[in-house]
């Protein structure tokens, strides 16, 4: 039962890697990277149950947090083209472009 779930998650991982490699648009890659992170979280949880050690769930939770940080950084990068400093300036730049 858990084996079937693990196999399905591994297939999802492979498909996500293919989408990451092929692209073509940035948003394909963002979605694929996020999907892959989620699949890793699920895989670790399933492996924990498969080996009779459900305490792996805590680790899976931490991975979800790390994945969230990574996705936030990617989205910020794709919106502003940079990370960190001078963000208010670039927001003004974006609004300027719209006008």
């Amino acid at each position: 039962m858990f084996g079937a779930v693990a196999a399905a998650i591994l297939v999802t991982m492979l498909l996500a890697i293919i989408r990451l490699a092929l692209g073509p648009v940035l948003y394909d890659r963002v979605l694929a990277a996020n999907t892959f992170g989620t699949a890793t979280v699920l895989l670790i949880a399933v492996l924990g149950y498969m080996n009779g050690r459900p305490d792996f769930l805590d680790i899976a939770l931490l991975y979800a947090l790390v994945n969230f940080v990574g996705t936030l950084a990617i989205l910020k990068f794709s919106r502003y083209g940079r990370l960190g400093d001078e963000l208010p300036d670039s927001e003004q730049n974006l609004q300027g472009e719209k006008d």
Binding site: L20, A21, A33, G37, L47
Partner: peptide, 28 residues
Amino acid sequence: EIARLRSLFGVVALSGVFSLLSAGLFVT
């Protein structure tokens, strides 16, 4: 794929995938 790709954003995302995969291996 990391060696083959020319899109640097794809390479960054794939290196994240690489380390998630190795983290999964360490867990098993």
